[in-house]
């Protein structure tokens, strides 16, 4: 049955149709929405390559989840008062990052509990704001699951600004961020790790804002972690890891976008599914690789 499917896909009657669609795809680049989609994918990949690497090595995936989901509150606020939801999500995710960072470090509360609470509050606020806003907003679905094809040019500029901000901060503070992620106690001797940690959480918040447009609130953590997790398998250097995961992110968004365009399926989910499958394959490959090396050593 599978073979039949593949045959149909690539060699069968439908071949011509698919080729035509691929040509459509290339022709589609003439359109602004398609160019914007590609640009959004690349800009998002840069942010998630850099910040996602920190998220993975510092093991703060759950915090990133809390920050991204609470951004939904900002989106709801934007819909209610009719301003750009990107602005609302920026405010909410920054606030969530700071609250999680300060409360979990300064008070005796358990960190994961705080994250869970902020996560849920943000989501609930979003749902309440949206139910209060007049009419039905079809757009909201695209904020939950992302729709890279509807990114307006104004949002591309916002993403560009946020990207430059992230790159500048990481370029300037790279060494201190590395020390913070690797050994917080040592960081305490040479810098101000609490403040740096809050700054790192804010960078995560900004990355979340960029990514929401591409993959949506719910899938942001996947985009933050998958490229970095694959990158981590190929290098022992954080800078290289950032570079590899940026490249991987660009591949994932571009290929995912093309697949979703050709088959007319949801773009955010396609991008994540494609990256997720690649991740699983990369785990399998590195597992086999290690086993091979191990048996070679034994011989």
């Amino acid at each position: 049955m599978f073979r039949e499917f593949v045959n149909q896909l690539f060699f069968g009657k439908e071949q011509n149709e698919k080729m035509v669609k691929l040509r459509y795809m290339i022709e589609a680049l003439q359109y602004e929405f398609m160019r914007n989609a590609l640009a959004a994918g690349i800009l998002a990949s840069i942010a998630c390559g850099i910040v996602g690497s920190y998220v993975v090595v510092k093991r703060i995936v759950f915090i990133s989840g809390g920050v991204s989901h609470s951004a939904y509150g900002g989106i709801g606020l934007g819909c209610l008062f009719d301003f750009n939801p990107v602005l609302g999500s920026t405010l909410f995710s920054l606030a969530a990052a700071l609250i999680i960072g300060v409360v979990s470090k300064e008070s005796s509360q358990r960190e994961d509990t705080v994250i869970g609470v902020i996560w849920a509050i943000g989501m609930s606020l979003g749902i309440i704001f949206i139910s209060m806003s007049p009419g039905y907003s079809a757009n909201l679905f695209s904020y939950l699951f992302g729709n890279i094809l509807t990114v307006p040019t104004s949002d591309i500029f916002i993403m560009l600004v946020l990207d430059s901000l992230i790159i500048t901060v990481v370029f300037l503070l790279y060494n201190h961020f590395l020390a913070l992620c690797f050994d917080e106690e040592f960081a305490l001797l040479v810098s101000y790790p609490q403040k740096l940690y809050l700054l790192l959480l804010c960078l995560i918040a900004l990355t979340v804002v960029i990514l929401i447009r591409v993959v949506g609130v719910i899938l942001v953590i996947a985009m933050l972690t998958i490229p970095a997790a694959i990158g981590a398998q190929f290098t022992n250097n954080l800078k290289k890891m950032m570079f590899i995961s940026t490249i991987l992110g660009i591949i994932f968004t571009t290929v995912g976008l093309s697949i979703s365009y050709i088959f007319n399926i949801a773009s955010g989910a396609t991008i994540i599914l494609f990256s997720g499958i690649t991740y699983l394959i990369s785990i399998g490959v590195s597992f086999l690789w290690q086993r091979r090396n191990f048996s070679c050593n034994k011989l």
């Binding site: 060494n175 992620c181 810098s191 250097n237």
Partner: peptide, 21 residues
């Protein structure tokens, strides 16, 4: 953690120089 021995020791040099070291 993706870090080499040399990079861990280099962290010690952060004590000499400011935040933008």
């Amino acid at each position: 953690f993706p870090i080499s021995v040399r990079d861990v020791v280099l962290m010690g040099r952060l004590a000499r120089g400011g935040l933008l070291k």
